[in-house]
């Protein structure tokens, strides 16, 4: 069950990857990367269940935080040209 769900999530991420490659704008790419990132969080949680290692959840939580901060930081940099 977890394997099937993980495969579906990975397939969805591959579909979105097409948008990240094609663009056309930088915002489309960022949107796609952000969506792939949040799918990765779910994928990590599912992998933790597949191999019965709950420690993966900590990785997923940290990845969710990093993904969010990265998107915001990139947008801020693009808008202001600096990060302080």
């Amino acid at each position: 069950m977890f394997t099937a769900a993980a495969l579906v999530v990975a397939f969805a991420a591959v579909l979105v990857l097409y948008r990240a490659i094609k663009g056309p704008r930088v915002y489309d790419r960022l949107l796609a990367v952000n969506v792939i990132g949040t799918k990765t969080v779910v994928l990590l949680a599912l992998i933790g269940f597949m191999y019965e290692r709950p420690y993966f959840l900590d990785v997923a939580l940290v990845y969710a935080l990093i993904n969010f901060i990265a998107t915001i930081a990139f947008l801020k940099y693009r808008e202001l040209g600096r990060l302080d």
Binding site: V8, V9, F11, A12, A13, L15, V16, R19, L31, A32, V35, K39, V42
Partner: peptide, 8 residues
């Protein structure tokens, strides 16, 4: 999730 990907 698949619908979201198709929509994107």
């Amino acid at each position: 999730l698949i619908v979201a990907a198709i929509g994107i």
